[in-house]
Every structure is written in C-alpha cells, then in structure tokens.
Simulated assay, not measured.
Amino acid sequence: MIERFAPSGTLLAMLNDTITAPPHLTWQEEALCAQTGGDFFFPEPGSSVREAKRICGLCPIRSACLEFALSHDERFGVWGGLSEKERLALRRTAP
C-alpha cells in the first residue's frame, strides 16, 4: 500500500493504521508512485527530482495528484509532476 512509502507527517503516513483508504483517496492506489516508493518523490534537499517527474509523466493519475497537492497545500515532494517550487509558483500565479 502507498502508506508504507509515505514520509512521516504526510497525509498518507497518518493513514498507516487504516485498513482501507477513504473513498476520496482511492486514486492514490492507482498512482505509479505507489508502486515505486517515496525516495524519488521526497528526495533529500538539493537532490534531483528528474526521475520522479519522469514517473509522473507516465502516470494516468497525474492530474488528480496535482489537484490534491494544490488543494491540500502540500509543501514537500513531487506531486502531479511538479516540484515544491513549481507548485508554489503555480499558486502565486493563480487568481
């Protein structure tokens, strides 16, 4: 399940003890990141996010992931193919 790959303090990590994800999180079960692990998506500061973005580019759930990250103000990691800085810039330009 996705939860085991989530860094502590994230929404997914808080669901670790949950047997089934709430219905509004089922898209995460289909995400490619769930099958690859969190290291690519939550790299050490200064590390490349190129591999995470490549995986996101192939993911059919990418738009739902980005929408979730923006609506929940996710500040860490790669979500929907965008880095932390890219999501911040997108939020700043949004009306």
Rank of each mutant, 00 (worst) to 15 (best):
I55E: 00
P60A: 13
L70C: 01
M14E: 12
C59N: 04
D73K: 11
A6K: 09
S8N: 12
G81K: 03
L70G: 01
A64Y: 03
I61F: 01
A13G: 15
S47F: 10
E86V: 02
S47E: 14
P43E: 02
A64L: 12
P7S: 04
D17L: 09
P45Y: 06
P7T: 04
G46I: 06
L70E: 04
I55V: 08
I2M: 08
T93R: 15
A64N: 06
L32P: 03
E44G: 09
T20L: 13
Q28N: 06
A64R: 09
R87V: 06
F40A: 11
P43C: 05
S47C: 12
N16D: 11
S8I: 14
L90E: 02
A6C: 14
A34L: 07
S71I: 03
T93K: 14
S47L: 06
M14Q: 14
L12Y: 13
S48C: 05
I61K: 03
W79T: 01
R50W: 01
I2W: 09
G77Y: 01
E84C: 04
A21W: 07
A89S: 15
F5N: 12
T26L: 12
A64F: 06
L90C: 02
L32Y: 08
M1Q: 08
P22W: 07
F40N: 04
R4V: 13
R87I: 05
R4S: 12
E44M: 15
Q35H: 15
R62Y: 05
N16L: 14
M14L: 14
P95H: 13
D17A: 11
R87E: 06
G37P: 09
H24K: 13
R62K: 15
P95I: 12
R91D: 07
H24G: 08
E3M: 12
V49E: 03
R54I: 10
C33G: 02
A64H: 07
A94E: 10
T26V: 10
E3L: 07
A31I: 04
T36F: 13
G77V: 00
L32A: 06
P45Q: 12
C65P: 00
L58M: 14
D73Y: 07
R62A: 10
L88M: 13
R54S: 10
I61S: 01
I61N: 02
N16I: 11
R92K: 15
L70M: 12
G46H: 05
E30L: 14
E84D: 07
A52H: 01
D73A: 11
A94Y: 00
R75A: 07
L90M: 05
R50A: 09
H24N: 14
M1E: 09
R75D: 05
R4I: 13
G38R: 04
A21C: 03
L58T: 11
M1D: 08
C59W: 01
A89Q: 13
C56R: 01
L82A: 06
R75G: 11
F76E: 15
W27K: 04
A52S: 03
I61Q: 08
F76W: 15
R91I: 08
R92Y: 05
T36S: 12
T26H: 10
W27L: 06
G57W: 03
T10D: 04
F68G: 02
T93N: 07
P22N: 09
L58G: 10
P7Q: 06
G9W: 14
G9V: 13
L11H: 12
E3Q: 14
A52L: 04
F42S: 00
H72C: 03
S71M: 07
